[in-house]
Nucleic acid binder design. Structure first.
Lengths: 319, 319
DNA sequence: TTGTACGCGTTATCAA
DNA sequence: TTGATAACGCGTACAA
């Protein structure tokens, strides 16, 4: 592999000129710059990341903590990871993945953390390197997330437009900001339309919502749309309704949230609030690298607007 | 962060002695070793990975290529990744993830590649660093994988034991070794039991097998078990049969392959060949690091035995 | 604007 | 068995 010195020789300059062409190009004459670039091209020069890291007192490593049990979540994280990886790769950073299976060891330049719950914020606050969270929080950490409230508001507005007379929210039984925001989106839309609100909450398993439908089938009335806080919950609702050959989407509408995987196996496919997970991964990484470069300055939040992906589980009258 | 020199001072020895305690402990007197360890403990010494990488002419980076479209695969890769990450973290390696979204850049010490198809082997062969594949292949690459043949054989044997009179294989329509092996496992079991074989093949989408059942319901006969090459295919079969209120598992049995995620939302849960994905990730990484350490020597293959996870989609008579 | 000297933390080599 | 020295590739400080 070619080094700085090799390029310097080839271009008849000193190492430092080559280094400057890379890091402070404004300090070098255009003529020299050209011949240095030419030499770099000829030798296919790539900076040695380890040497850069050593001299800059950095590691070029980002740690990604996934605090949730991955087996019970949609394949959500793989897309996030792909987004993160794209940015990191471009900037010559690499990744260490920390899960329940392996504990932390060694240094890094910064952290991306996701799946955190209440009790986690304390130790996260004590980390000595820049942190960006993936997931809404109200503890003043920089974060990226879907705009949860807006997403559910869009979903609820759509259900209203489609003329469902009863619109109920199927929430997740967790006391976390993302859930509060999703419920708030539902409440806001319902208030605007002066409709009555009903919120049920379940742990995030499809069989729980399926059971719910089966136990309460007798009391359900047609022309209802269920706005669900996850595709899992939505999937269970659909399955329960299908058991009674309910007329979806005419008598019952279903809207989910996530739009990652589950939908590929649902019949009919579920209308869902589609999160831009890959893009969010990118943004997380960008935010973190910017934070590192700036010496740890707060970067604020990045909330991307999801899209409502319309499918067969809701009426689709042109309005 | 404490360095070698700090530890050396604290222990009243030279840097080299400390370095040797780490890398060639047999060359150091026990007494010195003890005081060096004590100093390392006191100062919470951690080797500087960048410096090690620089002097050893390595990068401490492994690249993971996922050549498949992740959105259409089960959340399979996250478990693989967790396994890989565990081993890499322990050995102070970090990861770069290469997918369809980002192209390769910069150096590394070795590759783990998965999701490859026919045409990929040529460029893989030309890589200049050690490679381990995750996925059976017949091109002489080192690899880790489930023992696909044995897994399906176990599944088929079980179906036979449960007394299903007709046992059909629902395969994936791909010309890849893992599929050949799974079909071979079915064939082998059927031959041993002198039963007639039927193999259908579909692209790996649940709606295709669901459609198949719906179109052919009239011609199906009870007492049949479907051995499927993936949980997706199995999921579609179950869904199709459910449409006709078929009696599962009495009249129809279903066995899938993978056991990752899909099963959490199936009713009844599907009996499946459970792959030890996390463990396989570990092994992949171990194999690759061993290969790197040995200067690139072939490591052979590692085929782990899956377990048959028995659930409600097959009869369960004590035999 | 360009070049020289030095140091980052570690390991291999060779001498003691 | 242990220590001094040089080297890995790069960037900063300073000198020219």
């Amino acid at each position: 592999m070619a080094t700085l010195s090799d390029v310097a020789k080839q271009a008849n300059v000193s190492k430092m000129t080559v280094s400057r062409v890379i890091n402070h190009p404004e300090q070098v004459r255009d003529e020299l710059k050209r011949s240095v670039f030419e030499a770099m091209r000829q030798l296919d020069y790539r900076p040695n990341v380890a040497a850069q890291a050593l001299v800059n007192n950095r590691t070029q490593i980002i740690k990604l903590f996934i605090l949730e049990d991955m087996d019970t979540t949609e394949p959500y994280y793989m897309n996030l990871l792909a987004g993160i990886a794209k940015k990191l790769g471009k900037e010559q950073y690499s990744l260490q993945l920390i899960t329940e299976h392996n504990f932390d060891i060694g240094g890094c330049d910064g952290y991306i953390i996701t799946g955190m719950r209440h009790g986690d914020y304390e130790w996260i606050r004590n980390l000595e390197r820049p942190v960006v969270l993936f997931g809404e929080n109200r503890e003043n950490f920089d974060f990226c997330d879907t705009n949860n409230q807006l997403g559910v508001k869009m979903a609820t507005d759509y259900a209203v437009k489609q003329g469902y007379q009863t619109i109920e929210f199927i929430g997740m039984a967790v006391k976390e900001p993302f859930e509060y925001s999703r419920e708030a989106g539902y409440m806001m839309s319902m208030q605007q339309h002066r409709m009555n609100t009903v919120i049920h909450r379940f742990n995030n398993h499809s069989h729980l919502t399926m059971d719910y439908i089966q136990r309460n089938w007798g009391t359900l009335h047609a022309n209802t749309c269920y706005i669900c806080a996850s595709d899992r919950l939505a999937f269970g609702i659909e399955k329960g309704l299908s058991r009674f050959s309910a007329n979806i989407p005419i008598d019952f509408g279903i809207i989910g949230f996530d739009g990652v995987f589950l939908n590929q196996v649902a019949t009919p496919k579920i209308t869902t609030v589609q999160q831009p997970i890959f893009e969010l991964g990118l943004r997380c990484a960008e935010m973190l690298l910017a934070k590192i470069a700036s010496g740890g300055q707060a970067q604020g939040v990045c909330q991307l607007v999801p899209t409502l992906s319309i499918a067969g589980s809701t009426r689709n009258n042109i309005v």
